[in-house]
Design a protein around this nucleic acid. Structure first.
Lengths: 183, 183
DNA sequence: CTGCTCATGTAATCGGTTACATGATTGT
DNA sequence: ACAATCATGTAACCGATTACATGAGCAG
């Protein structure tokens, strides 16, 4: 279990449809836990079967009906138990690292391009996180509850991007440095 | 494809058996790309079928035979093509973040414990990376080729752990702060 | 008339984890 | 005696991705 819990957490605030959860994921939690909409729909079915969420169809005119899910007491209990379990260290799949390990058999400029691309992505994400920071959390000193959790998530995002940027710059310096011993 | 490439990169240096690759993964690449030994054995079979590696059985007395794999020209070409492809942003699955998003419904001390645990893990990994750094790369200024790639991998590890540690400390300060408005 | 948003799903496949299976040698 | 290391694998399952499928309304 894992995505199940992320969905349950989303429902703590208020009920949501699968579509809404999917959209929310893209903008907030999705930066730390990616999930496709198909997976969210399927997971919601499972959660409903297990009685951790309850479903209610909301009829709509001129557009498809929505199925709105709410967390149940069982769901709340499941979440609470899960939060107390030890948290596994996040699993990393960093292809760029694997590519760097091939240095020597692949020309340096190819890898320089890859690092530059990554740097641009980090900077874009950092800018996005910082804009969220400004609009939603101008003064973090007064936060509490759910809001504080969201703020800390954003802070982790900012700090990760910053350290990624620092690494890219260092890597570029070393990769683009004229070869030692070249005349 | 992804693990396949990580294995091919491992074979650039010299031929290895599945067992050796598995051990190597645990100590080096595995910090950035985890894989179980079963998966490595199976992937090696696939790679051999596709002609990207060649297998040779080495008979041994008093212990099981080894199957030693070497990268083929086709394998090298496949790797080279892959390195040139755009690198996807690493997929993150950070459960701790999801747990923090439940703040307000779960008691703060539970999450404080989780963050403390994470901090300890970061510090352990950082110490390990730094010890590798000292023994293998005392002066990075003179590195080139494969060695430089490995060094940069280690640097990314160090920097990630450092930023993780900084985040944990900040999070603990905010979580343990006496509640605003409490008398 | 093209593409976007809203809204839900099924099916096939791939990648990864867990469990199961074997067996000799070396070190404590 | 017991655990660890060396050395290889199969089978079942679960989780995630990709492809396929539908269909109305609205903005440019």
């Amino acid at each position: 279990m894992a995505l199940a819990h992320a969905i349950l957490v989303s429902l703590l605030d208020r009920p949501h449809s699968g579509y809404e959860i999917s959209k929310r994921f893209d903008k907030t939690v999705g930066f730390f836990w990616r999930a496709r909409k198909q997976q969210i729909y399927q997971e919601l079915h499972k959660l409903a079967e297990d009685g951790l969420v309850s479903a209610e169809t909301v009829e709509q005119v001129d557009r498809p009906n929505r199925i709105v899910y709410s967390i149940t007491d069982d769901g709340r209990q499941t979440l609470d138990d899960w939060v107390r379990e030890p948290t596994p260290y996040p699993s990393v799949k960093e292809e760029l690292l694997v590519k760097l390990f091939s240095l020597g058999d692949v020309e340096v400029p190819v890898l320089v391009d890859q690092v530059r691309q990554r740097l641009a992505e980090h900077e874009e994400r950092l800018a996005y996180f910082q804009s969220l920071m400004k609009t939603h959390y101008p003064k973090p000193a007064t936060l509490s509850g759910r809001k504080l959790g969201h703020y800390l998530g954003l802070r982790l995002g900012v700090m990760n991007e910053e350290s990624g940027i620092a690494w890219c710059k260092e890597a570029l310096l070393l990769l683009e440095r004229p070869k030692a011993g070249a005349h």
